[in-house]
Design a binder for these strands. Structure first.
Length: 421
RNA sequence: GGUGGCGUGUCUGAGCGGCCGAAAGAGCACGCCUCGAAAGCGUGAGUGGGGGAAACUCCACCGUGGGUUCAAAUCCCACCGCCACCGCCA
């Protein structure tokens, strides 16, 4: 959630931010009005409570026949206090619920517009020209079959559409990618983490995933657990209700991720680009708000380093305002070149959430003036299926074999993935 | 899943229904002492919120949420978590 003070001080900016996100700017005025009402009610209640406290003390001190009339008064007051308290907390809840609907204040540097209005920051590498190589590239599903690395048919048989098995070299490829990612993250100073993937509602809410993104999370009704769509959730909630005294803190979480992919019927139905379950190594930073911008660029750089190591052509885009998550003020995506789609497709994403998540999760640090909410940022180091797609398609040979990127060889133990009989 | 015990401030740990935002130790910060340090002595530190230009003042917070009461850390209920033992189990 954003700071009400910020809204009160600069309602115009808040309204403008809502507008470019495609969200309702009227919420700003509603929350200000609700907060005014809340304050008035709170003042009334607190005055009554102060009076009650005094009276109550005098009851305790009174003796004999002095007591009865005082008790009488106190009883009457008690009812009033209760009513005032109920009103105050009702209004506080109302203001809070509006506040929770308001998205983070967008970075004024972010491009304005919808999904199509991103700005390309740079291209790295050149898409391979298969006409020069003299063969038609196969898509990852075919290569996956040839290598006996990906089995989408049995995935569908057992679990339904958008499920798959990684087998043989496919499975080993995941381990190699994860090991490479974790070891480079560790070298960069990240603490590796394997978090829980079932979380309670509060953790989900705190990270901002139960609002607009709610339709995309799996929920276990009976136990009221949510399956996380990214380890960002348990990593952010890791320090919930804590005051941190050492910043920045950087974590690299490795976990399975679960996504309902509601509303994507017919989109990416082939292969493993869009699936319900996959594994991912995610970077997560807690830092001071004033360092967030620089940290965001650092996360992007680590993502680029990884892509470079995989020797895959890609471009970096600055995602437009209307396409940002509720928590993010700015987001950079890396899109890898996918030859058979003749297109760049998203493989990583890094968001600057400033204090938005930390305020909900109550994560602070100490300053001379008191405590302050920290900033949180996240970035994908590697999302396994999409990285596998990119590797298989970009590094394939005419015979169906696939060259393994140099950086991965020590982790995989082979230079080339060979067709399996 | 069953039984028993426990959840208090940075930590340990007291706490009779009103005098408890909370004893006492440790730790922390500052000062004195010292050539410096330790010890010793003194002083000061919780979090969130309302009002106020400010000094300041008021409210809330003793796992969480309800309840009883004029008044709850203290009584009652539910939930959550931790510990121990038993059962089951990868």
């Amino acid at each position: 959630m954003i700071d009400l003070k910020v809204i009160r001080e600069n309602p115009d900016a808040a309204r403008a931010s809502q507008k470019v996100r495609g969200e309702d700017p009227a919420l700003i005025d509603q929350v200000i009005a609700a907060d005014d009402a809340r304050r008035t009610a709170l003042t009334t209640f607190e005055a009554l409570r102060a009076e009650q406290n005094l009276l109550s003390k005098s009851v305790g001190a009174a003796k004999g026949e002095e007591k009865a009339p005082l008790l009488e008064k106190a009883k009457a007051l008690s009812a009033q206090v209760k009513a005032a308290e109920a009103t105050a907390s009702e209004l506080a809840e109302k203001a809070q619920s509006i506040l929770l609907q308001i998205h983070n204040l967008i970075d004024t540097d972010a491009p304005i517009g919808g999904e199509e209005d991103f700005v390309i920051i740079e291209h790295v590498g050149t898409p391979r020209d298969f006409t020069v190589d003299g063969f038609e590239p196969r898509d990852h599903v075919e290569i996956g079959k040839i290598l006996k690395a990906i089995d989408t048919e049995r995935g569908a048989k057992v679990s339904g559409s958008r499920f798959y098995y990684l087998t043989g070299m496919g499975a080993l490829l995941e381990f190699a990618l994860v090991n490479y990612a974790i070891s480079s993250a560790t070298k960069a100073g990240f603490t590796p983490v394997i978090p829980p993937v079932l979380v309670k509602p509060h953790a989900m809410e705190g990270t901002g995933f139960l609002g607009q993104a709610a339709e995309n999370v799996f929920h276990l009704e009976e136990d009221d657990f949510y399956l996380v769509g990214t380890s960002e959730v348990p990593l952010a909630a890791y320090h919930m209700d804590e005051i941190l005294d050492q910043l920045p803190l950087r974590y690299a979480g490795y976990s399975s991720c679960f996504r309902r992919e509601a509303g994507t019927y017919g989109k990416d139905t082939r292969g493993i680009i869009r699936v319900h379950q996959f594994d991912k190594v995610e970077m997560f930073t807690f830092c001071k708000p004033e360092d967030a911008k620089a940290e965001h660029l650092r996360l992007l750089q680590w993502e680029k380093d990884f892509m470079n190591a995989m020797e895959i052509p890609y471009r970096v885009i600055d995602v437009a305002s209307g396409d940002l998550g509720a928590s993010a003020i700015r987001k950079f995506d890396i899109e890898a070149w996918i030859p058979t789609q003749n297109a760049y497709r998203e493989v990583t994403s890094t968001s600057n959430c400033t204090e938005f998540q930390a305020r909900r999760l109550n994560i602070r640090y100490r300053e001379e003036s008191g405590t302050r909410a920290v900033a949180t940022l996240n970035g994908t180091l590697v999302a396994i299926p999409r990285m596998i797609v990119a590797i298989l398609e970009n590094h394939q040979n005419d015979d169906g074999s696939v060259n393994v990127p140099q950086a991965l060889r020590p982790f995989l133990g082979v230079d080339r993935l060979l067709p399996q009989a």
